[in-house]
Structure formats: C-alpha cells, structure tokens
Design a protein around this nucleic acid. Structure first.
Lengths: 202, 202
DNA sequence: ACAGATTGGCTAGCACTGCTAGGATTCCTG
DNA sequence: CAGGAATCCTAGCAGTGCTAGCCAATCTGT
C-alpha cells in the first residue's frame, strides 16, 4: 500500500510540475512557445510522459486555466473586500479583472479564449471557476435592481469586461483610454441606483 | 500594355477567388480546415501561388476579415435604418451584431479574434472596418449623454457585444438566455435617457 | 535471494502544418 | 522562329501534436 501511495504522490507531483511549467512557459513566451517537445524538455522528461498525465495539449491548457481561475478569484476577492461601497466594489472587481487580463495575457487566454473542453456554465464546472464567477456575482448582486436576474446581470457585466480585455489585447482598441472605457461600463451598470444603497459592503 | 492589364486583371480575379474560397471553406468547416494545401486544391492551383498573392495564411484571413466587415456593416446599417427610435436603433444594431457573430462564426473570428496584423483603431484601417465601426457610432451617438465621448462610448458598447458573442460561442455562456443578456446590456446603455429623445431616427 | 510478471519511460516515427527554393514549362518579344 | 522572361509546380524543410513498440528498471511470489 505504501509503495502505491508513494507512486501516486510522485505522479501527482509530476503532474503539478507539468502544469506549472506550462504556465510559466506560456506566461514568459506565449502559448505558441508551449510545444509538447519544449514542455517535455522543461520538465526533463520525454514527450509521451505528458500524455500519460493529460489527454493532450488542450487538457494541459485547461489545467493551467483552472489554476488561473483560482488566482483571478483571489485577486477579485481582495479587491472587492477592500472596497468601501457597493459601487466601489463593482468598480474594484472590474478593475481587478481587466488588470489580470492585461498583466497575465497567456493565463487569461487559456481561461477565456482557448481550451473549450472545460465545462463552464454547469454545476460540473471546476470549483475555481465557480469561485471566480461567484466573486463577480457578489460584486454585481448589490447593484441589481428589483426583478433582475443576478446571474444574467453578472454574465452581462462579465461579457463587458471580457470584451474590453480581448479587444484591447488584440490591438482592436487602443490601450490608452482603457480606464475611461472601464469607467463608462461601470457607470452604466451602476446608473439608476439610489444613493441610499451605499451601506453594506458585505 | 493590353497584355499587362489583362494579366493584372486575371491576377486580381484569382486573388478574389482565393479569398472567397478561404471564406467559404472557413464558414463551412472552420478555420482549422483552411490549410494552405486544402485551399490550393480548392482553387485548383498549387500552394506557392497563394504566397505570390499574400504574405501568408494570416494575410488571407485578414482579407477575409475585411470582406466580413463590409457584410457586417451592411447588416447593421439595414437594422439601424429600419428601426423607429434611437433606443430601438441601438437595440437593432446590437442584435444584428450578435446575430452576425452567431450565424457566421468563422467570419467573426477572422475579424475579431484572429488576424491581428490589421490596423484597427487608426486612420490606416481598411475602409470596410471603419464603416462597420461607423455604424456602431451612429447607433450609439444619439443615446450619448452630454459630455460623453461618443467614440469611447461606442467602443464600450462594442466590447459588451463582443464579450457576449465570444463567451457564448466558446460555451462559456449558455445560449438560451442570450436575448435577455443582450436586453440587459442595451437597457443599461439606454438608461438615464429622457423619453423626449425618441424623435429623430437619422 | 532469485526468476518472472508488470509497470514505466524512451526512441522513433506518423501525418500533418505553414512556408520556400529551384527547376521546368509556358508565354511574350524581337 | 530563336531568345528571354514571367509563371507555376514539384519537392522539400523545419516544425507541430500525438502514438506504437521496445527496453529497462521495479515489484512480486516463492
């Protein structure tokens, strides 16, 4: 039994090694540089080892994406809990989100543009993923009007943020005015809120 | 001289042939199916011919993207001019945009997710591209508040639409509630508008 | 402690990609 | 009709994701 568990532990460790190596390589040189050969060299094993852990390159990217979701969730949570009011919380989360997308583009792409074989809008979605979305929900919920479906509103806000990030990162939108665009988006989502809703950060 | 012009005409025709073949193949089977070999077979020439017209596959995709922008611009214009009021126009354009993205995913991807070697937010951007953006601007301009930068507001609205399309198409957002999300986005962009602004469709 | 079964990892290779060099064939010019 | 030039194709390069099959190290039962 002990031998079995040791082997499983070593396997799990190597799996983590693969994922972190893929993430670091992608963040350093982009996903194009993450070839199976390069990745195998990085972890000092041969290519087929990768396929004994993951079904393919896509699965490795998906694993990286899940890690990235955990990071993003944490950054959004930090931003949200540090904000003073509900409008500020929404703004802080939006800024945390877009900052994440700009500062870690490879990670962002793995999470939200590539790697479609992850279940997203279902209960089977990885926990980290639901956490990240949950952070958005918690930021959006207080600004929802009566009768609004909070989930749908959150998805819409998310889409706005995602659009800003991807269009900017691909050069379709100039980087300079990002803050103003973000402010516009947030402004339109918090418009119509009575000033009395300021109380209650959590 | 006449021979020269005939050859140039034939070249231009073949170039159009390449672009339309690429577009049709992409729309039928996705961009992954558009390999240079496959495309060459489709136009009944050998591979290197492609490279005598375009710098590479990316350039071909860019040409397809420009065509797609013209299509999108026209569809948005039709929707906008058929709408009764300014709110309706914004909604109609938004719906035309997202419908385009869903009905012609390959074309949409060439325009807004791949093919980054096109100049976008500059005066050197292709005419079709500026036309498409111009349609958005014309729909957004009437709902802009005093002091709003219409360009920035349009970019923000665009980002919202783009986010909805891409997240939905990649399976991150369920398709069912698309109409509701779109309505939410439009609603938040037209909020705060006095009811008196209804007049003046063009 | 030793033969045998089993697991594990590696070497080599497949089918494919975008792209290019060089030769052959066709075409126009004098 | 010969010479020259433009055009197009065959063949190949370096790289991709992924896999089959062998070889060696490891664990098992006696």
């Amino acid at each position: 039994m002990s031998i079995q568990t040791r082997r499983e532990r070593e396997r799990a460790e190597r799996e983590r090694l693969i994922v972190t190596a893929a993430r670091e390589l992608a963040e350093a040189e982009g996903w194009d540089a993450v070839t199976t050969r390069r990745l195998a060299a990085e972890i000092e094993y041969s290519q087929p080892v990768l396929y004994s852990h993951f079904k393919g390159k896509g699965a490795i990217m998906a694993a990286v994406a899940v890690q990235g979701c955990a990071d993003l969730a944490q950054e959004m949570r930090t931003a949200r809990t540090a904000a003073k009011g509900v409008r500020e919380a929404l703004a802080a989360v939006g800024e945390a989100y877009t900052t994440f997308g700009r500062r870690r583009p490879a990670l962002y792409d793995a999470m939200f543009t590539h790697a479609v074989d992850l279940p997203f809008a279902t209960p089977e979605a990885p926990a980290a993923l639901q956490e990240a979305f949950g952070e958005l929900v918690q930021a959006v919920e207080p600004i929802a009007a009566r009768g609004d479906d909070v989930g749908l509103l959150t998805e819409t806000y998310w889409a706005g943020l995602h659009g800003l990030v991807t269009l900017m990162r691909s050069g379709r939108l100039p980087e300079e005015a990002h803050e103003q665009r973000l402010a516009l988006l947030i402004g339109h989502f918090t418009a119509g809120m009575g000033a009395g809703a300021e109380t209650g950060t959590d």
